[in-house]
Structures are given as structure tokens and as C-alpha cells.
Design a protein around this nucleic acid. Structure first.
Length: 299
DNA sequence: ACGGTATCGTTAT
DNA sequence: ATAACGATACCGT
């Protein structure tokens, strides 16, 4: 109420949304919510359009522009069956044959990443001595909160309009001793390339810093090996890091992933094919998986 | 589909 | 120390 209310948030100024896909997400999100709510009765395009306040034609266009996938195809991509298919198709996924040291260049199948591990005991604890610059950017999956250090990308969170503050608190709470500076100019280049598949190339690897416990680091590194268009189970990862009975702990570690999307925690699903959960909302997980399916088709 | 239980890293007392 | 807590999985019913 008073003039001096430091917690009163200045509404973050978002980058102008030049790409249509970014602005589409709000509608897409509502459509996905509707779809997952009653996917059993396979809602028609008309019903869907009605629910999100678009014309059938408009929704069809918008959806295809966003996902590279028609609403109908997307609807299929959200079913249990499809999720199960993501698990199987062909070769064993988490082969140890990949060279992937604790810190050293690792490689993501799609987005290329070189990562540096920073376990809290190893470095100063809880981000002490670290300066983190952050900024909000429009992404295909809502607003992305991006955090960088001078060594590379350290955090990526998602949120929706009006909830930026909560996402920031969530992230800063993970490394409470770091110094935070809002600096959109520093984060914008990351936003631009992370969400544009055309820029995922090995000749320009994305530098990433992973801050977590040893266990978490092993889980996140395992995730980095899951290629786009595929999925693995929590117990797959447990087995792969040599602790086959720890699938529940793996779930917790996956949930603690500070680098959403870049470390593809959305590709971890239950053994039944159920999506089970996502820190930034199950709807977002569906959106990302569906969007990836569309990107694959476009290639 | 639902309920109980073994399991285990993390966080908070 | 220890208790509570999951984005699990498995076994009943």
C-alpha cells in the first residue's frame, strides 16, 4: 500500500514478440488443456476451437504454425499409446558407450551442449561467489526465465504472464547465495538460439553450467543423452547410473532440473507411459513433447 | 482403477 | 540423527 513497497513487482518488460509462434502459445496452451482434459472422447476441431475462442480454421492454422502439427495429429501425440511408443522404438537409449565425462564436452543429440558440472560442495556452497544475470523472454512454451553466468547458461524456467515473480523466486531459492542482476541483454542471445532448431549446430555448442549434487548431475547427464522424439523412464535412468532401485530418487532429481528444455527432463516419463509430472506444469510438458514431434516431422 | 509398500536422495528439524 | 517427502515401480485386490 505504501509508496515504498519493495516487493511490488515492476512488470518485466518482455522482448517484443516478433515470432508468431511465441504469441500462439497462450491459445495452444488452452487447447492442450482441453485436449488432455477429455482426450477420451477425441474432441473435434470444432469443439476445440469453440473452447479456446477461435474459429476452426483459425485454430488449425495457428496450431500448425506453432507445432508443425495439426491439432488432430497433436491430439494423437498426447495419448498414452504415443508416449509408450516414445519409449521403445529400436535401439537401447541409455548406452554407456557415449563418452560423457563429468565435466568435459558432452553432446546432446539435438541441441548441442558442452557442460560443466558444479557440485555445491565442490564450488562455494549454494551459489556463493556466483553472479547470475537473468531475463524474461517469449518462448514457444510461454515466458522463459533465463539465467546465465560468465561460464554459460545456468538456469531456464518457464512461467506464464503475471507469474514471473514466482518463477524468479523458485530459481533464486536454489542458489540463495548468488548475486542476481536483471540483464535482458545478456540473456537474449540464449533465448534466441535455444528455441530455434535451425541454430542447433555442433559448430556453435551451447555452454551450460550445471549446479547440483553429484547424484543430480548424474541424472541430468543421463537426460542429456535422450534424443528428441524419444523418451525414457525414471527407472531406465536409475539403472543407467548404477542405482537400479533408486527410480523414485531419480524422479526427484529430474524434478529438480534447473535447465528445463535444454536438459530434456520432459522426456522422462513413467514406465506405464504416463507423463507423471513436470515442475512447470504438465500442460507444458505435453506442449514441449508435441512441439518436438512436429519439429521432427518438419526435418 | 486403486491401495499399500519397498526404496532412496534431499531437505528441514 | 531423523523424519517427511516425492515427476517411481510393483504387487495385490
Amino acid at each position: 500500500m505504501t509508496a515504498s513497497m519493495p516487493t511490488m513487482k515492476p512488470q518485466p518488460v518482455l522482448e517484443r514478440d516478433i515470432t508468431p509462434e511465441g504469441g500462439d502459445y497462450e491459445v495452444v496452451r488452452r487447447a492442450i488443456e482441453k485436449i488432455s482434459l477429455d482426450y477420451r472422447d477425441q474432441p473435434s476441431l470444432e469443439v476445440l476451437a469453440e473452447a479456446v475462442g477461435e474459429t476452426p480454421n483459425g485454430l488449425q492454422k495457428l496450431f500448425t504454425r506453432w507445432a508443425g502439427l495439426s491439432p488432430k495429429a497433436f491430439l494423437q501425440a498426447v495419448t498414452l499409446d504415443h508416449a509408450r511408443r516414445l519409449l521403445d522404438s529400436g535401439m537401447p537409449l541409455l548406452e554407456t558407450s557415449f563418452e560423457l565425462g563429468m565435466s568435459g564436452p558432452g553432446r546432446l543429440h539435438d541441441l548441442f551442449v558442452t557442460h560443466e558440472a558444479m557440485s555445491p560442495g565442490d564450488y562455494k556452497s549454494r551459489g556463493a561467489g556466483l553472479t547470475i544475470r537473468y531475463g524474461y523472454h517469449i518462448s514457444p512454451f510461454g515466458i522463459a526465465l533465463i539465467m546465465v553466468t560468465d561460464r554459460g547458461l545456468a538456469g531456464l524456467a518457464f512461467t506464464d504472464a503475471g507469474e514471473e515473480r514466482a518463477a524468479l523466486a523458485d530459481m533464486t531459492g536454489r542458489w540463495p547465495n548468488a548475486i542476481y542482476v536483471e540483464d535482458m541483454a545478456a540473456t537474449a542471445p540464449y533465448a534466441a538460439r535455444i528455441f530455434d532448431p535451425a541454430q542447433w549446430r555442433s559448430d556453435r555448442p551451447l555452454r551450460v553450467v550445471m549446479i547440483g549434487t553429484d547424484f543430480q548431475l548424474r541424472v541430468w547427464e543421463a537426460l542429456l543423452r535422450v534424443p528428441m522424439g524419444r523418451a525414457c523412464t525414471y527407472s531406465d535412468i536409475a539403472g543407467q547410473i548404477g542405482q537400479p532401485t533408486a527410480s523414485r530418487a531419480v524422479g526427484a532429481a529430474v524434478g529438480a532440473n534447473p535447465l528445463s528444455f535444454v536438459v530434456p527432463c520432459h522426456r522422462a516419463i513413467g514406465k506405464s507411459g504416463a507423463l507423471t509430472g513436470y515442475h512447470w506444469g504438465l500442460t507444458r510438458k505435453r506442449a514441449i513433447l508435441g512441439w518436438e514431434a512436429g519439429q521432427l516431422g518438419a526435418a
